[in-house]
Design a protein around this nucleic acid. Structure first.
Lengths: 177, 177
DNA sequence: GCACTCATGTAAGGAGTTACATGATTAG
DNA sequence: CTAATCATGTAACTCCTTACATGAGTGC
């Protein structure tokens, strides 16, 4: 059981998902490629933490919805008590930002302008997602007992980070222009 | 040449460093263990991007200061033009925050309280580091031509992120208490 | 026609972590 | 007297990415 395994269980507590969906949803705290996810789902099924449900679809490929088992949920619950490992963030952009004096004004500008638009897009998507949560759950979002609470606060955290990235890029752009 | 190799070159443009020092300094954009750094430094030396200087010390182990070569600096410069790969962040804490409804109030509280103090410590260290930069470089910090500029903006970014993490933890704590 | 989305998998290789190894000095 | 800091390295292993493989439907 590695961190990704717990990330998958955490997602599946909310609702049954296919590997394809999980790969998208994991973006919020543990990015992983499908090539890592599919074998791990098979392993978790084999260990009794998940059960698959085959969904036949027309017009698109069939899929497997994985459901979390009581053992899976219990395993995740027990893990909650352990101290989380230190967060890891690896960002090539920051290496380039650090080395900005090595490059010309045009390259520096492009670097930050691209970063800015990348995060503007991220913010837009995140705001839409949060609006959808608000429409569906309303005041339950602030109820720590409700299952949605965890999902809400995590996406709020990500939104804040993305908004701050935009503000910081703009701050740097005013200095280099 | 992987991202970590460029991260090392970026650090060594500023000043010659030992592998030990680099492991600490890399925290800001690309965390790596010494077991990954030492072999890579040897490889970069072998490729002609670095030259080592042996420093004999009394009262503590001798060390190797790596200096970047003109070829190393040129390689880093050329890399600046390429679009950076997408940032990766993997944070076990966020998996637990997402699953907060599975656990009791005491565990949830401890989880966020620990996170809060972890980042309070981070902010303290970062603020001290930035104050030292201000004392040494003053108005040069805002001069995009100056070598310190990149280092300054990156640490500012990290400080903002850490301060925001504190504010967010406090926001969640008010909701769960 | 071409790229994108949905959908699942395997194989090979590169990146990163943990453990093994050594050892003096300093602070509590 | 115990833990932390400084300091460098290797070995084994796990984790993660890239590439290979397949294929129908949709939008430009």
């Amino acid at each position: 059981m590695n961190s990704l395994a717990y990330a998958l269980l955490a997602m599946l507590v909310r609702k049954p998902c296919s590997g394809y969906e999980l790969a998208e949803m994991l973006e919020v705290f543990w990015q992983a490629k499908h090539s890592q996810i599919y074998p791990l789902l098979a392993k978790l099924e084999n260990d009794g933490y998940l059960t698959p449900e085959n969904i036949e679809q027309t017009g698109r490929p069939n899929k497997k919805l994985y459901h979390i088992t009581p053992e899976g949920k219990e395993t995740l619950k027990l893990w909650m008590d352990k101290a989380p490992s230190v967060p890891v963030s690896r960002d090539e952009f920051l290496i380039k930002a650090y080395s900005i004096s090595l490059t010309d004004a045009a390259t520096a500008n492009r670097l930050f302008a691209d970063r800015l638009s990348f995060y503007k897009d991220k913010v837009q998507r995140r705001e839409k997602l949060i609006q959808e949560m608000e429409a569906e759950y309303g005041s339950h979002l602030k109820d720590q007992e409700h299952q949605i609470f965890g999902r809400y606060i995590v996406h709020q955290r990500k939104l804040l980070m993305e908004q701050q990235e935009i503000a910081w890029c703009q701050w740097v752009l005013t200095m280099i222009n």
